[in-house]
Computed example of a mutant assay.
Amino acid sequence: MTELDAELLGRWELLAGQRAGAVGTAVIRCYREPHRRYHTVRHLRAVLRVADELSSAAVNLEAIRYAAFYHDAVYAVQRGDNEERSARLAGAALLSIGVRPETVAEVIRLIRLTVEHNPDAEDGNGAVLCDADLAVLGAGERDYAAYARAVRAEYRHVSPELYRMGRAVVLQRFIDRPVLFRTAAGRERFESRARDNLAQELRALRVPPIG
């Protein structure tokens, strides 16, 4: 077990209890799948950390943390139902270790929100999870560039032209939103930088490489 895996397992056991360690190990292992380049244990740790930092906006931090662990548990770029499969996996796993059904239902709802990252205005839990998941958009220049390269690597089977077209559509959808981050702290920390990063990547995508 790596140091990072041990850190994540420790967080899981604080949340779910040591008797649920095998379930935690299984979900962490999902983020170690060899085809992943961005949606890895590093992303999981980052989401958990930012969720903690934005926790003042949360109503049910327990549900948010469980949702963070499972939000990308199922991930394959060729599929269109990763979030739904992740939600179902979370539901079955959490019920099996005795998590309260109402908490499990909230976890499932939160994971499904990560399809669009567009929670309602009064949805504090959704705002925290979605902001934590999107926080990389507001990273510094070097970290954002590493994120963009990692996402491209996950789509390495897609031709450069098709990737530029598809990625540009995704970026433009984010840019067109009135706000990207729904918590006050998230907007203050990430909004401006995220818009700069998105615009810069979009400009680069629309210029075909030379040679």
Rank of each mutant, 00 (worst) to 15 (best):
A57K: 04
A16L: 12
I64Y: 11
L44C: 09
G17H: 02
E84Y: 07
I28Y: 02
R29C: 04
G80P: 00
E84V: 10
R29F: 06
A51V: 03
Q78L: 08
R37G: 01
A51Q: 07
G17I: 04
A6V: 08
V77T: 15
D52K: 09
E53I: 00
E7A: 08
A6S: 14
A26M: 09
V41N: 02
Y75I: 03
L9F: 04
L8K: 01
A22V: 13
R45V: 02
N82A: 07
S56T: 14
P34G: 11
G24V: 05
V27S: 05
A22S: 15
N82Y: 03
V47W: 04
E53S: 13
E33M: 10
V23K: 01
E7Q: 11
S86N: 11
L48H: 12
A26E: 15
A57H: 14
A76C: 09
L15T: 03
A68D: 07
E83D: 06
E3D: 12
Y66I: 01
L4N: 11
L48S: 11
G24D: 07
L14S: 13
Y66W: 15
L48I: 05
E33T: 09
S56L: 12
S86K: 10
G80E: 08
A67T: 03
S55F: 07
E83I: 06
C30A: 14
P34M: 09
D81C: 08
A90F: 07
Y66N: 02
G91H: 04
E33D: 13
R37Q: 13
G24C: 08
R65W: 04
A20K: 09
A51Y: 08
V77D: 02
E3F: 03
L61Q: 14
F69H: 11
A51W: 06
I28L: 11
Y38D: 02
E13F: 01
E84S: 09
R65V: 08
L4M: 15
D72L: 01
V47I: 10
L44S: 09
E62A: 12
L89V: 01
H71C: 06
G80W: 02
E33K: 13
A20T: 11
L54N: 12
R45G: 02
L4G: 10
A67Y: 07
A58K: 07
L54V: 10
L54S: 12
G17Y: 04
T25W: 03
E13R: 15
H39G: 07
D5L: 01
A73F: 05
A57R: 11
V74S: 07
A63L: 07
R36S: 04
W12I: 01
H43Q: 10
A76E: 15
L15V: 04
A93P: 00
T40A: 05
G21W: 01
S55W: 06
D52G: 13
V50H: 08
P34T: 05
A67F: 09
